[in-house]
Amino acid sequence: MSIIVSHLTFAYTQGGKRLEPTLKDLTFTIEEGSFLGIIGHTGCGKSTFAKHLNGLLFGEKGAVTVDGHDVSQKSERKKVRELVGMVFQYPEYQLFAETVFDDVAFGPRNMKLEPEEVKTRVTEAMQLVGLDPERFSSRSPFDLSGGERRRAAIAGVLAMRPKYLVLDEPMAGLDPIGRREILTLLEKLRSESGCTIIMISHSMDDIANHATKVLVLEQGSAFLLDTPQEVFSHADELQQIGLSVPSITKLCIEMNRRGIDIPRTICTEQAFMDWIREVKRNA
């Protein structure tokens, strides 16, 4: 099973006028269990695309199906929203309940689950994000620290046990520890429960280190869709459309410029150090 995007086109309307399409003829498949990184500069259609994955928006042309469920069908939408969890930018701004428990339980309760099951799910989700249920369940979400609030909000999505998790800039505004916690969580979700991760991010380093596939959106079209190694080896084209590249790719480019023949597909610290070791061994 997978998310299939076929010929998706979408345009916003303003004052009754149809604007230039935000998404243009997107076609690809998001494989189950993969980690798709979506990059592109602000206004390229990333967030609009994300809203198509659970039917908050649906294209005028083309279709998105999640495990065979068409997101544009009103009858399928409930199912789709259970399958696809959405973590928006600054998700802590959506917290509303009196206690962390009630907030995290909002999704499961909307799914009309039994109270026992709700409790199991909330506990499980809170543990996943590293908020001890004993300590945090009865606290007000508004009393938590910034990083804790972010994790509580993510727990609210995880409690629905989504098969696909879409995250729009989940690390924005967090400090380095906060960022690392979120990335570790995503890796854990993927390896332990086989959750498919779709992450929009501006951090090329994070994308290079974690994504299995990278989609580059440019003015609503798929500019590139490939492994991070392949995508970032097109550094010149990426820079032309105003995107940056991972720090390691920058280093490789500088080294190329100085006549060192290091392959451009190297985009993580790990790969770079492996290459150095190889050079050292051959020397």
């Binding site: 259970e82 928006f88 701004y93 959506q94 999704g107």
Partner: peptide, 16 residues
Amino acid sequence: DESDKIRNAQMSRGAD
């Protein structure tokens, strides 16, 4: 804008 964002987020959590 903000109320739109929150609305979308809660709808994604199954709010009706």
